[in-house]
Amino acid sequence: EFNDRNIRVSNGINEDHPVGNGIKAMQACLDEKSGGKLKLTAFWGGALGGDLQATQALRSGVQEAVVTSSSPLVGIIPALGVFDLPFLFASPEEAYQVLDGEFGDMMSQKLEEAGLVNLGYWENGFRNLSNSVRPVTKWEDFEGMKVRVMQNDIFLDTFQNLGANATPMAFGEVFSALETNAIDAQENPYVTIDTSKFYEVQKYVTETNHAYTPFLFLFSKAIFDTYTPEEQAALRECATVGRDEERKVIQDLNKKSLEKIKEAGLEVNVLSEEEQARIREKSMVVYEKHKATIGADVVDGILAKLEEIRK
């Protein structure tokens, strides 16, 4: 049984991001299942407010849905901080296995307790470092570099621990701050470096793969609970369809974005295996420091799961 529903989905990113493709695929799936009754209306570029603001609107039952990175939500659900831990996942496949499995369900449970129904883990991509000072090949190269980070404790500690001068700054100010050298560096997925044109004002890009912060497709629990079981099931299934499409598109786009960054004349390097291991080693203090806040069970749980996968 389906009713006419207008589902407003807030996005901080722009429509040309692969999430746009994911939402189209999800809508096609919903059209088929609901006979066109369940309609997604997406708002882009933070038109309905920032990610955190939109998430709070979901919790208070004011708005239906949001696609947001996990990082801004740690103030609501501290356990989500686990995804901010440096060098946690080694590959997208590893991330899929963890997120789409039991561990992901456990995190969804925690979200539900905060009034948020997680319809699935979409992809934001691994975060990489760009800067205008020097190629980063070892952790010593971070020394004194002014890196913009999100307003997030774990990112701050990660970069401070590496010797960088981590500066929290709103996303909207990053471009001009890089352009004017008020800061030297920023860290984001390739797609963001491309779509936000950071490559125009940076010289070096290092594939650090230092964090994989997933996108969450969140639905207001207060509103979700008023939907019929058929509607709920359709939303859950179609969110998965959208997720698969989005992951596929973003993988391709990542490659294209990297090409574009290279064509723009930036020097791109990949952190070597040994150096990656060395930095991970050095970053373990960050794990220790934040273990209590995130929850020891969560940190140990994901590390155990990863060890199991890596065997």
């Binding site: 407010g49 920032g50 603001q53 609107a57 208070s60 039952g61 004011v62 709103a170 909207g172 100010e173």
Partner: peptide, 17 residues
């Protein structure tokens, strides 16, 4: 929903720029 007013009012000022 009164929360629309309350939330958007404060979020408006909570901007570094």
């Amino acid at each position: 929903n009164t929360q629309i007013i309350a939330q958007n009012m404060i979020a408006g000022a909570d901007t570094f720029t």
